[in-house]
Design a protein around this nucleic acid. Structure first.
Lengths: 142, 142
DNA sequence: TATTGTTATACTCTATAACTATA
DNA sequence: TATAGTTATAGAGTATAACAATA
């Protein structure tokens, strides 16, 4: 049943779910000692595609200035590398190292574990609706 | 179309949408000079119901220790009050002041503005699906 | 001139552990 | 003993503005 018509409950539910998943991910990946932002960066990079800082900032909905320190830590731990983009030497291409691929795999797996548990209890129409709403949010705020 | 089956894309989409709305809310409420956590606390209290710190922590999916400083600032600005719960004097009842009701109303309105724009572009089945998924997330992580 | 990303700075968010008061 | 919330502490997230290098 639909009970909110612009009351803000949709956004509050969104935020609650996000906070809850971030907390669970940090707990589930406690042995890797990763912060929420580090998990988010790794989970996004887990597809193996190299990205500029700006692209990664868009993917994680953060700002480049935030990513600087997140990436500094991931570089220090040997999980990612920054390589100058030959095509635009103002910009870096960020990619995973071999060790980083393993950590990113764990992050993506932990995210996937939560997701599978959720998918087991909703219909595919529900899932499609969820994606439609999050997509609409990004469009509205674009 | 449904393209993810436990790949983690659902959770990544959730986090992106949250970050995007928090950024937009802070920008839209710039004249009130509120942080994301303050907006979240006010938006939750906007229904007028007094809550214990623990309840508010559950509503916002944060920890009581985080709320201490958030509430300190809101108290200092005259938006909320902490009153000892006579029924359990270890605990506080947090509620809005008159000024706080106004600020909370603005926060809830800003949240509602985004929500209405989103609702205008999705079906009610999509919305129901969204709620089913966020609810399932909270259940899975409970 | 505009853009990419970093640096510097100043707050805010967050967790853990220790603590106080109450149950 | 257990629970509600605060305090202390330390590290991480965030924004803004200034900056360097490149386009």
């Amino acid at each position: 049943m639909i009970s909110d018509q612009g009351t803000g409950l949709l956004i509050l539910a969104l935020h609650r779910a996000t906070h809850a998943t971030l907390g669970a991910l940090q707990a589930g990946l406690a042995d890797l000692d990763l912060t929420a932002s580090e998990i988010s960066a790794l989970a996004n990079l887990a597809d193996g595609r190299a990205r500029s800082i700006g692209e990664l900032a868009m993917d994680t909905a953060t700002k480049p200035t935030t990513l600087t320190s997140v990436l500094d830590r991931l570089v220090r731990r040997g999980y990612v590398v920054r390589q100058l983009d030959p095509a635009d030497r103002r910009s870096f291409q960020v990619s995973l190292t071999a060790g980083g691929r393993q950590a990113a795999g764990s992050a993506r797996a932990a995210v996937g574990d939560i997701e599978r548990a959720v998918l087991a209890t909703v219909t595919s129409a529900d899932l499609a609706g969820f994606h439609a709403v999050t997509h609409a949010i990004m469009e509205v705020l674009r």
